[in-house]
Write a protein that binds this DNA or RNA. Sequence first.
RNA 1: CGGGUAAGACGAUCUGCCGCGCCGCCUCUCGGGGCGGUGAGGAAAGUCCGGACAGGAAAGGGCACCCUCCUGUGGAAAGCACAGAUGGGAGUAAUCUCAUCCCGGUCGUAACAGAAAACAACCGCCGCUUUUUUUUCCGGUUCGCCGGUUUUUUGCGGUAAGGGUGAAAACGCGGGGUAAGAGCCCACGACGGUCGUCAGCGAUGGCGUCCGGGUACGCCGGGAGGGCCUGCAAGACCAAAUAUACUGGCAGAUGAGGGCGGCCCGCCCGAUGCCAGGGGGUAGGUUGCGUAGAUAAAUGGCAGAUUCAAACACAGAAACCGGCUUAUAGUCUUACCCUUUUU
RNA 2: CGGGAUGUAGCGCAGUUGGUAGCGCACUACGUUCGGGACGUAGGGGUCGUCCGUUCGAGUCGGAUCAUCCCGA
Length: 122
Amino acid sequence: MPHTFPKAERLSGKKAIDRLLRCARYGHVEGIKYAYAPDSGQTQNRLLVSVPKRLFKRAVRRNLLKRRIREAYRLQKELLPPGGVDLLLTYDSREMLPFARIREAVAAILTEVASRTSHPGV
RNA sequence: CGGGUAAGACGAUCUGCCGCGCCGCCUCUCGGGGCGGUGAGGAAAGUCCGGACAGGAAAGGGCACCCUCCUGUGGAAAGCACAGAUGGGAGUAAUCUCAUCCCGGUCGUAACAGAAAACAACCGCCGCUUUUUUUUCCGGUUCGCCGGUUUUUUGCGGUAAGGGUGAAAACGCGGGGUAAGAGCCCACGACGGUCGUCAGCGAUGGCGUCCGGGUACGCCGGGAGGGCCUGCAAGACCAAAUAUACUGGCAGAUGAGGGCGGCCCGCCCGAUGCCAGGGGGUAGGUUGCGUAGAUAAAUGGCAGAUUCAAACACAGAAACCGGCUUAUAGUCUUACCCUUUUU
RNA sequence: CGGGAUGUAGCGCAGUUGGUAGCGCACUACGUUCGGGACGUAGGGGUCGUCCGUUCGAGUCGGAUCAUCCCGA
């Protein structure tokens, strides 16, 4: 699997986001809250990244954190097999976490979501 | 050498791997793929001014309301820039910084302190008057006193020099003058103004001349110039689903259609129902939009090298343009100032 | 993104032509009561969001800055 992140893998549009939030199941690891909803009808997974303004007032810092989260997802996306899963990652710390910590957190989230969506009976 | 002032520039570069937005070309199994190009700032920020652009309102003009206010030049304009003028303030200095139209008003304020905060009054000083003289002194004496002077006291008047408080005290100094005093008068100086002249495009300044005498701040009025309101979430276009103005067709009180559990019967409610066209209009999309131009929003991650004390300043375009203000590690250039040392 | 508004005691608010910063509730002490509440008396508590400027003197006037809140598809 190539480590790419094209436009089709980005979650956009008001209806798609409404569907995700309405059907979402939530979780939390260190520094990041996440929500996911399977069976979006798409063949690939889609990702939405958010860093609240109330945590970081400066746009430069929000942009940097969003880029780090996206990069962490791009490099580790094989942990979550493609199957129409929509995923929302929301930053949830007042500290600027370094890239290594964010990568670990995203890996944990992807592993957890993959186990729950691909083996629903377990 | 060190410290400082002013003006200006930069505020990372390169290599490897992976990755992103937009544009062009090629390929294509129409999902995509390949190649090339391009891709954040000096403030992109705050939203403090101005302009374009867009919509709304409006015959024209005035009042009201709001903003601006020394001079010249630049500029589309600006609470803009540059250069200057006058008067303060900071600094040893280079230099920085603040203020600024004109005229008027029985206009207001000046806390505390102080006699008084600008009208005056009070203490004091001076003149006249009254009173007290058992109590100062001098002169005259008919030895009873008389006149003057001094002290005390009453009233009237003159005066703003003195009152040392305050952030601020009614031009300064010298002389004359007076009962005592005062710009009351005079000389010099300071301040404000008239006129003349010279310099300057001008604000203004120099010189001469004559005149004047209560300060500071604020408020209100006057003059000149400018200003309609709202803002890209403005505005324009395309346009699902649902409801529907309007038009046409069909069915319909001889019951269309709906409800009672899916069908039949039965019961109940009952005048519109179905189809097609169609305008406005919502979600959504396109445009507005730019040789960066997205639409949940692109410049990043990892490793290394370089100059190096350190690559860790402030900070991310969302419609555009000209300014202002604020944040900013560090580096460089030019001019100048100060201190110390050396020559 | 574009428009607005507000910061004063623990909380809610006053505070005009600049001159000792106040009110209500709350708090502390005392009184009252067998005890508590209520009531009465007395008292404490303030970088007036922050930094400059004007002034002899700013909560107040003029700038800048920070924070919070509201409105607009």
